[in-house]
Design a protein around this nucleic acid. Structure first.
Lengths: 194, 194
DNA sequence: ACCTGAACACCGTTCAAGT
DNA sequence: ACCTGAACACCGTTCAAGT
């Protein structure tokens, strides 16, 4: 599905492939510990490869993030598709929003990268973010058709809203993020759109 | 009012005072251009002083920010007080929220610093942020008493909400931030609290 | 009392030289 | 085809030496 980026090609030299995998594993560890703005040098060190090897495989930090998150982001998009079968359009949207928020807080600083990438077409994360946004759009449209979400809300609004509350939760406490999510979802209700 | 930090003391040596002012002016320029994570070295350079002089006056980046923003943050707090006389408690809250959002987007990256500082008591910005939060709290309580805002919303919610939408606007477009602010304020309405 | 500028440790990115 | 590691430019922070 993802047409982006250098996937771990079958036609990779054995040592190259091994380094690729090691770099991804190291990145997962280091990002988990220090957030997505962690030192790339540290990642290369922990992977046991030279500095330049990292750049050979991942020309930018976002390329590395894309490879690391690809599966998870595809899964989130797939979840949106699946939730179109949920009996309650509104509940489906809320469930998905929570899942999206959880994904977004996988690593510290990730939410900022995901938010930037939605409007930056040159980002390696752009395509995956677009797919997520479109997934959310379908759930949003369905809820609007059911009359539980105001008509003037757009997919971009939904995407920005989820990321904004996730960011707030990251900066303060997860509980605070949860509270804002509740308020925001309530704010999508048609009763107050004027 | 602000008991924090090394204000530009009267009892400062003339050259020290001059350097202090130059550093603040340079910081304003550099932050405006590159955001609040800009190079401190650049600021010192532009102020025409040595690296260590900056640290002498402002031991941390947040100390520099605090000195630079003190007046504006005091003004925002004062505005909250003034708006307690506004005939419409709800409109007063909305007006203030917009003013707070505008302040928060003065420099790129500022919103993150302000959000972090509210829970970090060691931050030089903490006291000013607390004062702003308390200012907002009064407007919030008044709106709640008037029945236009849900009872379960707290001052921390309001603070986080304003910063979250400001952040979203910074990452995408100001118009997107405006849209989220509208939705968020609507989400504060009692009609949907359950 | 304050300023200077070198020193240290760290980082992102590039690229010639290797295998 | 890929890896290495040095090179370059940049940065935050500290501190001995000056005035």
């Amino acid at each position: 599905m993802s047409t982006t980026g250098p996937a771990p090609q079958r036609r990779m030299r054995a040592d190259a492939r091994r380094n690729y995998e090691r770099l991804l594993a190291a990145a997962a560890t280091v990002f988990a510990e220090h957030g997505v703005d962690a030192s790339l040098e540290d990642i290369a060190r922990r992977a046991g490869v030279a500095n330049g090897t990292l750049y050979g495989h991942f020309p930018t930090r976002q390329a590395l993030l894309e490879a690391l998150l690809r599966d998870r982001m595809d899964a989130l998009t797939a979840t949106a598709r699946d939730l179109l079968d949920h009996p309650s359009p509104h509940e489906a949207l809320v469930i998905w929003a929570r899942a999206a928020m959880a994904h977004t807080t996988t690593y510290r600083g990730l939410v900022t990268a995901l938010m930037r990438s939605i409007e930056d077409e040159s980002s390696e994360l752009h395509a995956a973010c677009r797919a997520v946004l479109v997934g959310g759009e379908q759930l949003l449209t369905r809820a609007q058709a059911a009359g539980t979400v105001r008509e003037d809300a757009t997919a971009a609004d939904l995407y920005a809203m989820i990321n904004a509350v996730a960011w707030a939760g990251e900066q303060t406490t997860p509980a605070q993020g949860e509270r804002l999510l509740t308020f925001s979802i309530d704010g999508l209700h048609p009763s107050r759109s004027r």
